[in-house]
């Protein structure tokens, strides 16, 4: 569509984006508010950040969350990429429908059901709940997202590149490592980022599958939030939002730079 947006479009976009961003913006503002009240501006202050870092429980939870996120995102990226390759590269194989069903279902499956079912699995297998079980659960949840991201890249990937590699003497395995993977790498990395943030974010599945000593940051935030608005939580949230924003901005600058170096001067 070439014509610019109409006034109606502009108004709806403005309202829509304000709706999306206003609450986040308010959180950030409140985190610097010296007053505990959200409607009163008690002056600029960073005291909530100070108390935050002395809150050992929150710090421990944050550390658990980061470890779970890093490991599960990496596992999910490997598994999800393999699943995407299997789904795009093999025509029909036995059990394909079940496989593709299971690959996409976690995207829409209510988290309560996934959490409950995974808990029952761990109980049945006799695995003690802890960091391991949360990691396994998050891997299962997030690999579906990696599959979708990588698969949409593979769908547009020119198959003849792999054939050319094989024609030039590369085994299928080498063709994958030397030609396919370098070309789908941005999608694989995007999948990892997505898996990592989803793991950082998850409350429900972590609640079901974690045990003592493996309380994650969202669980900690949740238990405090239920008691009402807390300036300390505002500060945590602001830090998280800041980290994600910086990450996403760096990522997009990186992609832009890649594009620019790839196109002729």
């Amino acid at each position: 569509m070439r014509r610019g947006p109409s006034p109606f479009n502009l108004v709806s976009m403005t309202v829509g984006f304000a709706f999306l961003y206003l609450p986040i913006l308010l959180l950030v503002i409140w985190s610097f508010n010296a007053s505990k009240l959200v409607t009163v501006w008690g002056g600029f202050s960073t005291k909530w950040y100070g108390t935050l870092f002395q809150n050992d429980q929150l710090m421990a939870a944050a550390w658990v969350t980061i470890r779970v996120g890093l490991i599960s995102a990496t596992l999910a990226t490997v598994l999800g990429t393999l699943a995407a390759v299997a789904l795009t590269r093999h025509g029909a194989f036995r059990g394909r429908t079940l496989f593709s069903g299971m690959s996409y279902a976690p995207l829409v499956m209510p988290e309560v059901i996934m959490g409950l079912s995974l808990l029952l699995l761990f109980v049945a297998l006799g695995i003690d709940r802890g960091i391991l079980t949360v990691t396994l659960a998050h891997t299962t949840l997030t690999m579906a997202y990696v599959t979708v991201v990588v698969q949409s890249r593979l769908a547009t990937f020119d198959r003849s590149l792999e054939e050319a590699a094989q024609d030039l003497g590369a085994t299928p395995t080498r063709a994958f490592w030397q030609v396919t993977l370098p070309n789908i790498l941005p999608a694989v990395l995007a999948g990892w980022m997505l898996a990592f943030t989803l793991s950082l974010d998850d409350l429900v599945i972590a609640s079901f599958t974690s045990g003592p000593g493996s309380t994650t940051l969202p669980m900690r935030i949740y238990s405090q939030v239920r008691l009402g608005v807390s300036p300390e939580i505002n500060a945590v949230c602001t830090l998280l939002i800041g980290a994600v924003t910086i990450g996403v901005i760096c990522w997009s600058i990186g992609m832009k730079w890649r594009e620019r170096t790839a196109t002729p001067a």
């Binding site: 003849s160 590149l161 054939e163 050319a164 024609d167 030039l168 085994t171 030609v179």
Partner: peptide
């Protein structure tokens, strides 16, 4: 294919 002593020039060139 990778052990056959023939090489192919692909239609879309398939340059990496």
């Amino acid at each position: 294919p990778h052990r056959r002593p023939v090489n192919m020039m692909f239609q879309s060139y398939a340059l990496f």
